[in-house]
Nucleic acid binder design. Structure first.
Lengths: 191, 191
DNA sequence: CCTACCGATCGGTAGG
DNA sequence: CCTACCGATCGGTAGG
């Protein structure tokens, strides 16, 4: 069911990702929908609200992807599935993911606080993944959990700049994890 | 020797990093320097030129850091020093690094092509670092060079979002490399 | 470095 | 969804 409101949300994500929030005018959005800019205000309250809705949609997608990671898998397997999930969201919703990762600082007031809290919560969930992996013995005991989480989150957060939608996304996540798990030097896995 | 032109370049980098290129007006820059906005045009040709000069300064700094990596060190050591160099540039010139990493797409015409070429060249130099490491035997023979370079470049390019200037930057680079080299599972180094 | 100004465009509203 | 409009601000210039 394609609604005009949905069309606007999609075009807003696309243009905010392509030109940035401040580089996109309500006039640009109106052109993309083929209407006059005054008409947009029956579909949204403000440009700021369009940004906020895009961010909420991003937060929802990334958290939902993490929800799918099973509690009972091994530490390495959980990291692998979490990275697959994150990269899949980026690949399937590249515009929303781009705006979520890069344009949050143009939010104002309470909108900004709410989205920042969601971003922090997402990163905390990742850190917990590593912390639990360490405690359950799936990761080396001297692992720097903060640095490890930061490293993987960097790969995840930078992905919108290079990921090509529909091109072996899962396999790429696995290749990252393979390097992370066994290292650049790569000793053989013990029997 | 503090010149007005230098003051303007510094304030431009700071504001472009803080509010984004399109979120910063010539009026904001004039306020930061304590002059009227018309006066800025004796120091620069246009707002676009200020962005371009910031980008050139970033490109210069990152390439210069890579120049310092010795040719004759081991593969792992070269990666470690290259990451140290990159993070040091981010820490010491956080505004320039932020703009270089995030605002390049607001450049137009030839300026954009030139800076994009410099960015590509920088990433190529990193890939070569891994390629040479593989050929000299310092890295595991089945290493996916493209994925490994992308992983480290992600950590490097995301650093402007979390790096605190002047706080153990070198040590953090070393911790990243330690995880990358020996892996999350971490087998003992062979004798 | 300032004052005064240019045309263009901005986000948003009123009234239909 | 449109027309017509609001005050504010934009990047930039002229002339001093």
């Amino acid at each position: 069911m394609a609604t005009r409101k949905g069309d606007l949300a999609r075009e807003a994500a696309r243009l905010f990702a392509e030109r940035g929030f401040h580089g996109t005018s309500m006039g640009n959005l109106a052109d993309a929908l083929g209407v006059q800019k005054g008409s947009l205000y029956s579909l949204t309250g403000s440009k700021q609200e369009l940004l906020f809705e895009t961010m909420r949609s991003g937060a929802r997608a990334f958290h939902a992807a993490l929800d799918e990671v099973p509690d009972d898998a091994s530490a390495v397997e959980r990291v692998r599935l979490a990275l697959r999930g994150h990269l899949r969201v980026v690949a399937e919703q590249i515009d929303v993911a781009t705006v979520f990762t890069r344009e949050w600082r143009y939010l104002e007031g309470d909108d900004r606080e709410l989205i920042l809290a969601e971003r922090r919560r997402y990163e905390d969930r990742w850190r917990r993944l590593f912390q639990e992996g360490l405690e359950s013995g799936g990761l080396r005991t001297d692992l720097d959990v903060g640095a490890a989480a930061l490293l993987v989150l960097s790969a995840a957060n930078w992905a919108y700049t290079w990921l090509t939608p529909g091109r072996d996304t899962d396999e790429l996540a696995d290749r990252f994890v393979a390097i992370l798990v066994d290292g650049l030097r790569g000793y053989a896995t013990p029997a």
